[in-house]
Deep mutational scan, measured.
Amino acid sequence: MEVRTIKVFTTVDNINLHTQVVDMSMTYGQQFGPTYLDGADVTKIKPHNSHEGKTFYVLPNDDTLRVEAFEYYHTTDPSFLGRYMSALNHTKKWKYPQVNGLTSIKWADNNCYLATALLTLQQIELKFNPPALQDAYYRARAGEAANFCALILAYCNKTVGELGDVRETMSYLFQHANLDSCKRVLNVVCKTCGQQQTTLKGVEAVMYMGTLSYEQFKKGVQIPCTCGKQATKYLVQQESPFVMMSAPPAQYELKHGTFTCASEYTGNYQCGHYKHITSKETLYCIDGALLTKSSEYKGPITDVFYKENSYTTTIK
């Protein structure tokens, strides 16, 4: 009895394709271990004539594949690729409408935090270190965002349907971005203890939790000093293409032309909904596939993004 075979390709990165001759009487799992086709788990399936010449994702289970996976995804987590594939199996079914010149995501599976993050990423200057993220990001900007969303979920250790947080998501993504040249110098002034300067680099240099107003941050924000008295913390120097200011959701007025974009969060910790506000020729609110415009805006804002380049204080 002759062994019926077909020729397929296996890959971990969709760049390096490895030619395989597979036995049609055995499952993919018996031949390769966990195997995925377009995100779908085909591990328990036997090869079919229609699979001839198709590319299958496999887990990096030998040295060659491990090197290829690390170079593309910059992670050695053995569960990463499987999590990416199972997320992709959902995100490829989502709709990605162009809204006001940006790629958004039609609401499904509690994905409003991903839509808000995706919209924000198209408006701030950011370059990702893992080629996987950078490639998928370019495709997302062009309207094909399924891979990018699935990668975000995998890097953030999230599953489809789980509630997510924009600030946490951005923080994970910033860790995989090139923020080497970003720098922030802060000064804390206390009447009792004097003053202390701190220099922050990388992710810490672009994120701040405690106030939404970048102007206020430049002037000074009140913080408790270690001595128990009130101290003032203010920005001395900022070198970065953008800054992200966050605070627990509270009524906040966004003035046209003073910011790049913002995240609105309605609801409580267990259950809520994100919308995205962007400042173009007027203010726009993007909620999944829905767009509304207004000249002014007041609502429960939790993150505001500002364009920056270089700032030095005039406070002496």
Rank of each mutant, 00 (worst) to 15 (best):
S50Y: 13
A150P: 04
H74T: 09
T76M: 14
L163C: 13
A145N: 05
A247Q: 04
G143V: 04
Q251G: 00
K255W: 06
C190R: 03
G164T: 01
G272H: 03
K255M: 09
Q123F: 04
T27H: 11
G272C: 02
H176M: 10
S310K: 01
R139N: 11
H176R: 11
A69M: 15
Q238V: 01
F80E: 03
E144M: 10
G257M: 00
N129T: 10
L151Y: 05
N129L: 06
E162N: 03
C271Y: 11
L65S: 12
Q222P: 14
G29T: 07
E253L: 08
G299A: 08
K218Y: 05
K95G: 09
S171L: 11
K233G: 12
G33H: 12
P47L: 05
Y36A: 07
W94I: 08
A142Q: 13
E296W: 11
H90Q: 15
Q251R: 10
L200S: 10
N49K: 10
I315F: 15
K280Q: 14
A117L: 09
Q251A: 10
V22P: 10
E296R: 09
A205K: 01
R184E: 02
K7N: 10
Q230C: 06
T302H: 00
P78N: 09
Y306D: 06
G82T: 14
P131D: 04
C285N: 06
A262S: 00
L114N: 03
T120C: 13
L151M: 07
Y306T: 01
G228N: 04
E71W: 06
K307N: 08
G39I: 07
R4L: 14
D287K: 02
S294V: 15
L102F: 09
P130A: 10
K7T: 12
A108D: 08
Y57P: 07
P249T: 00
N14G: 13
S79A: 14
H256R: 14
I152G: 03
I277E: 01
K183H: 10
E308I: 14
I105N: 11
I315G: 15
N14A: 03
V58T: 11
E68H: 09
P47R: 04
A40D: 14
P300D: 11
V21L: 14
G267Q: 05
Q98N: 11
T312K: 13
T75Q: 11
L59A: 15
D135R: 10
A140N: 08
E71H: 10
H48T: 13
E2W: 10
T258M: 09
P241K: 10
K158I: 06
M170K: 02
P47T: 05
V221G: 04
N111T: 06
S213N: 12
Y265W: 04
D13F: 04
D180E: 14
M170Y: 06
E125W: 01
C227S: 02
K183F: 09
Q216M: 08
N14T: 15
L151T: 03
D63M: 09
Q195E: 14
I277L: 03
P248D: 04
T278N: 03
S213F: 01
K201R: 14
V3T: 14
T10Y: 13
N178W: 01
H273A: 06
C190Q: 03
T76C: 15
I6D: 10
N157C: 07
F80K: 06
K44M: 12
T266N: 08
Q195N: 13
L126P: 08
G272F: 09
P34H: 11
G220D: 04
M209Y: 15
D41Q: 08
V236Y: 09
V188D: 00
K46Y: 10
Y265P: 05
D180F: 01
Q175L: 07
C271N: 13
G220H: 01
T169H: 00
A145D: 05
G101Q: 07
L121P: 05
W94L: 00
S79T: 14
D77H: 07
E264V: 10
L81E: 07
V58M: 08
P249M: 00
L17R: 06
D77K: 08
K218D: 04
L235D: 02
K106W: 12
T55Y: 09
C149K: 05
L235H: 01
L121Q: 07
M245R: 05
K106L: 11
A150C: 02
E308L: 09
I152M: 11
Y137H: 08
L173A: 05
K46F: 12
Q20F: 11
S181H: 15
K298P: 05
T258W: 00
L88E: 01
G33Q: 06
C227R: 04
I124H: 02
Q237H: 15
M245L: 11
P249K: 05
M1L: 15
G288L: 03
I45M: 13
G53K: 12
I105C: 00
R139C: 12
G228V: 01
C182V: 06
V185N: 06
K255A: 07
E71L: 03
A87F: 05
D62Q: 09
I152C: 04
P241W: 05
A150G: 07
Y138R: 14
H256M: 13
E144G: 07
Y72E: 07
T76Q: 15
S86P: 06
S86M: 09
I105G: 05
I152D: 04
Y36C: 05
Y252E: 00
L119H: 00
Q197S: 13
Q123T: 06
Q123I: 06
R167D: 01
D135W: 09
A69P: 03
C156F: 05
K280T: 03
V42Y: 14
Q270W: 07
S310G: 00
A117W: 02
L153T: 01
F80C: 02
T258D: 15
E71N: 09
H276I: 03
V67N: 14
T211C: 15
G164P: 00
E308S: 08
G33N: 02
T226H: 14
Y137L: 14
L151G: 02
T260V: 15
H74I: 03
D303W: 04
A289W: 04
Q134I: 04
D135L: 09
K106G: 14
Q175R: 11
Y284K: 00
G210W: 07
E264I: 15
V189H: 09
G257K: 04
P249W: 00
G82W: 11
V67D: 14
T91G: 04
Q230N: 12
P224A: 12
F217Q: 01
V99T: 13
Y72D: 07
C193A: 00
K218E: 01
A142E: 15
N178H: 09
Q122Y: 06
K106I: 05
M26A: 10
Q175H: 14
K201E: 11
T302A: 03
F259N: 00
L37K: 12
D77L: 04
A108T: 15
I286F: 01
S181I: 07
L179I: 00
A247S: 10
D23M: 11
T292A: 08
H18I: 04
